[in-house]
């Protein structure tokens, strides 16, 4: 008696054709996904730490009365931001945002010259501080951050509200 074992050529061909079809679909989908990944910057706003940094910055800048040029060894630069901002009590405090450490944001608040709070956010992109002058003459703060592919991912302008 002749005993057949294994697959016929037809079975192997059909299986490979079906497998090849799925492979093509997956390759097309992943290629499109990669293309989009390269086109769009990282959505940092989906990261809670980044949102927390932006929220604190917004609050502090909106309540800012003026920007001190230097304070306690810090000076205004594209990696440090100095603000004299109002607290909920109505009294002011000097706030320093220090973006010099890669992946970290340090917010130090000073009551007169005494450090009153020190807050650190980690796992955040490298922020940069820039000035943005409005046509009205007011000075806004522009916060930007780029992703690893050097694409602009965060670009926010914050403007102090009118205090007088």
């Amino acid at each position: 008696m002749k005993r057949e074992r294994g697959f016929t050529l037809m079975e192997v061909v059909v299986t490979m054709a079906v497998f090849g079809l799925f492979l093509i679909i997956i390759v097309i989908l992943t290629a499109e996904m990669r293309q989009n990944e390269q086109r769009y910057p990282i959505n940092y706003m989906a990261h809670p730490e980044v949102v927390a940094v932006m929220a604190r910055l917004r609050k502090d800048i909106v309540d800012t009365k003026y920007y001190p040029m230097s304070f306690q060894g810090y000076s205004q630069s594209n990696k440090t931001l100095l603000l004299y901002t109002l607290k909920q009590t109505g009294f002011g405090e000097t706030v320093v945002y220090d973006f010099r450490t890669a992946g970290e944001v340090h917010r130090k608040a000073f009551n007169a010259t005494q450090l009153s709070s020190d807050w650190v956010a980690r796992g955040v992109p490298d922020f940069e501080v820039g000035a943005f002058s409005l046509s009205t003459g007011q000075d806004a703060v522009r916060i930007t951050a780029k992703d690893a592919q050097n694409q602009l991912a965060i670009d926010q302008i914050f403007l102090p509200r009118a205090h007088d």
């Binding site: 706003m45 989906a46 046509s135 806004a140 670009d155 926010q156």
Partner: peptide, 23 residues
């Protein structure tokens, strides 16, 4: 992709609001 696009668009929109609310 749409979420990414929306986040970018709203950053530009809020920046523009900052300017126009002071005119």
């Amino acid at each position: 992709r749409q979420a990414n696009e929306t986040i970018l668009a709203y950053q530009a929109l809020s920046n523009e609001v900052e300017i126009w609310r002071r005119i």
